[in-house]
Structures are given as structure tokens and as C-alpha cells.
Design a protein around this nucleic acid. Structure first.
Length: 265
DNA sequence: AAGGTAGTCAGTTTTACGTCA
DNA sequence: GTTGACGTAAAACTGACTACC
């Protein structure tokens, strides 16, 4: 068993998402949605690395650039023309939109109408739009139709755009979590490698120590076995349950599998 | 049971934008 | 200063799947 063996132990990268019933659509339909956050506190821990929108830090955009970008969005096909006056209303955030109003929302164009006869145009969300979407996402990672309508109206977007944004946002969250899990597994694999090297060395030393010792005659090397889980070296074979030649067991707490505990011992 | 509808997801494509030579 | 190639982020699309009626 070498270091390579240690890493090739069938470790599987797994994501444990809990399905939960977040909302009902009012028709009695049970909506099982993927709960992206394993826990609310964990979610918070993940959040800082998730950046959406065009922050100055990540994109180096200046206010002027942002304004220019917003201005470009005010093309006739833009769906955010109301934001192009340089006053993307923060008051929108404070608007409480009643569901009845949301049902009456009429958008300038429908999805079909807009797509008709024109190449698809990609919208760039403004900072305010992104911020509000982020806020809503923190509250709920999915939206019911009324929430979607209301948010779309609040943002002056089409419901479909809000829906797509939430889909993509959930996907990015999941991807980020997968990357984090991958990092944890990498570190765990490195720890296993180190521990394996240390144990190999220790075993080598013990064997060298045994050589010339009366105990060596008592336990031929082939009769010694090492438990893969607790690292105890015992005399193998029948009737060896209380073998006298035992190394100091390694404290398990030093060596915590982040995903599972071995039941070998 | 079969068909329709609506919602989500994974995977992919397309587009906008920043960087750099 | 500008231009074009390139890479990346994210908006949008597609098809599969599932639950419900």
C-alpha cells in the first residue's frame, strides 16, 4: 500500500441536499424542491463567495462604466428601460406588492412577442436588480408563481427572466457547494496520505525492533495484521484476540472522516 | 392507465464584457 | 487611443424528469 493507494480508496464526492416542501401552488400540488442550503447557518457561510452582478471589486467597473452600461440597456428591446434614467428605484425594494396586483401585471411584451423576428438579446441586470434578486433568493431559493410575478413587476422584468435567474442562481450555489466539498475531500485525502506514510514508517520501525527480539519468534510477520480502521496491529489467526503485541492505538479523533465513520472496528 | 400541464434540474449555447497584446 | 482575439460570467435555451390532475 502506497500513497497512491491511499487516494484511490473509492471516496465519492457526494452532495447531501435535503428535499423539503417549501411552498404549495395553491392547487394542493406538493412542490418538492431541492433545498440547496444544508442549513441556514451553513448557507451563510457559503454566501460570501458567491458574487453575482457587477461589483466594483470583481469587475473593476467604475460608476461611469456602470452608467454607460445601463444606458446601453435602454435600447428599444431592453426590458429594463425604466432603470435607464439613472434612477434605478431603490424604492422598488420597499414596494409591497399585493398578490392581486401581481396577477394583473401586464408586461410590455410577452416572451413570444419579444423573441419574434429578433435575435435573442441578453440582458445585463443592474446592480439594484441583482441585489434585490439576491435578497429574495436568500429568503427563498425558489419562487411560487405569485412571488415570481410580483418580483418581476418590482424589477420590471419578465417573469421568465426572474425564473431563469433563480434557476441559474440555484445552479451556481450548487456548483459552489460542490467545489467546497471537493476541497474538503482533497484535504481529507492529503491527511490520509500523511497518516499512511506515518504508519508505514512506524510499522517499519516496529518490524526492525522486533528483529532479534524474543517476540519475533512468537509472532512471525505473516501472522501480524493491522486493522485498517483503528490501526491496531495484532497477532492474526485463531485465538489471537488478546495478542500481547499491540501498538498504541491512534486516537480516532485525529482522523475524522468528514463524510462517514468507518465501522470496521 | 394514459395524456396533459407545470415545475425543476442538468447540460448547453449564446451574449456581454473585461483583459491583454 | 483602438482594435481584435481570447476568456469568463451569466442570461437564456433545451430536453429529461417528476408530480399532480
Amino acid at each position: 500500500m502506497d500513497v497512491g493507494d491511499t487516494c484511490d480508496t473509492g471516496l465519492a464526492l457526494g452532495l447531501n441536499y435535503n428535499a423539503s416542501d417549501r411552498w404549495s401552488d395553491g392547487h394542493g400540488r406538493r412542490e418538492t424542491i431541492v433545498k440547496l442550503e444544508r442549513s441556514s447557518s451553513n448557507m451563510v457561510a457559503v454566501e460570501p463567495s458567491l458574487t453575482l452582478g457587477l461589483s466594483d471589486e470583481t469587475h473593476g467597473s467604475t460608476k461611469a462604466k456602470e452608467e454607460a452600461r445601463v444606458a446601453r440597456q435602454s435600447s428599444p428591446h431592453s426590458t429594463v428601460s425604466s432603470f435607464s434614467d439613472g434612477h434605478p428605484s431603490n424604492t422598488n425594494k420597499e414596494n409591497s406588492i399585493k398578490s392581486e396586483e401581481a396577477e394583473k401585471v401586464s408586461f410590455r411584451v410577452s416572451d413570444e412577442e419579444e423573441e419574434e423576428g429578433s435575435a435573442r438579446k441578453k440582458l445585463r441586470l443592474t446592480k439594484d436588480q441583482s441585489a434585490l434578486l439576491e435578497d429574495k433568493f436568500k429568503e427563498h431559493s425558489t419562487l411560487n408563481p405569485k412571488q415570481k410575478q410580483a418580483l418581476a413587476k418590482q424589477l420590471n422584468l419578465r417573469p421568465r427572466q426572474v425564473e431563469v435567474w433563480f434557476q441559474n442562481r440555484r445552479a451556481r450555489t450548487k456548483l459552489k457547494q460542490t467545489e467546497l466539498d471537493c476541497e474538503v475531500l482533497k484535504r481529507y485525502c492529503e491527511t490520509l496520505s500523511d497518516e499512511n506514510r506515518r504508519l508505514q514508517k512506524e510499522l517499519h520501525e516496529l518490524r526492525a525492533l522486533r528483529f532479534g527480539s524474543p517476540l519475533y519468534m512468537q509472532f512471525p510477520a505473516a501472522a501480524l495484521t493491522m486493522c485498517p480502521s483503528c490501526k491496531k496491529i495484532t497477532a492474526g489467526g485463531e485465538g489471537s484476540k488478546a495478542g500481547p503485541f499491540v501498538t498504541a492505538p491512534k486516537p480516532h479523533s485525529l482522523f475524522v472522516n468528514p463524510f462517514a465513520h468507518s465501522a470496521a472496528c
